[in-house]
């Protein structure tokens, strides 16, 4: 029986695979890598592609990932899979979008007053509820 290594494949939203395997093949950024037990500590980015987990001689499980990170410790392999394709300019666009929304909201004065008012009304209602509760207990 070959030596096995513990493999965890997780994405931010769920666990994809967890268990022992003989070999893991992953699409690292500088080329495909195969990891077996007692590999040296290793940290790299992954390209979008296929991860193959060889559980035993008969059983190899393929997983598709859209990029991520790979960490190797002598007895544990961790693959952090991204849930979407990541690229610097895509992230940049998302950041600009988020900032723009904040600016737009600041300009939207009418919305602002409404919210503040609503918050004040909420506090008032809570105070009312509390005094009603007190009255009821006092009765």
């Amino acid at each position: 029986m070959a030596m096995t290594i513990h493999v965890d494949i997780v994405s931010a939203e769920r666990e994809i695979f967890s268990g022992q395997a003989e070999l893991v093949v992953a699409p690292a950024e500088m080329g495909e890598v195969g990891i077996a037990a007692r590999h040296a500590p290793f940290l790299t980015r992954l390209k979008p592609g296929e991860v193959r987990v060889k559980v035993n001689a008969q059983d190899t499980q393929p997983f598709y990932i859209s990029g991520g990170m790979l960490e190797v410790q002598p007895h544990i392999v961790t693959i952090l899979a991204d849930t979407a394709i990541r690229a610097k300019d895509l992230d940049e666009a998302a950041a600009i979008e988020a900032k723009k929304r904040a600016e737009e909201m600041l300009q939207d004065k009418s919305g602002r007053i409404d919210y503040a008012k609503a918050q004040a009304q909420l506090l008032e209602a809570m105070a009312q509820l509390r005094s009603i509760e007190k009255l009821r207990k006092g009765r």
Partner: peptide, 16 residues
Amino acid sequence: AAGFFNGIGANVVAQV
């Protein structure tokens, strides 16, 4: 949170 921080006039940088 967006409504609250705009209401109190905080420095909101980004929001979603």
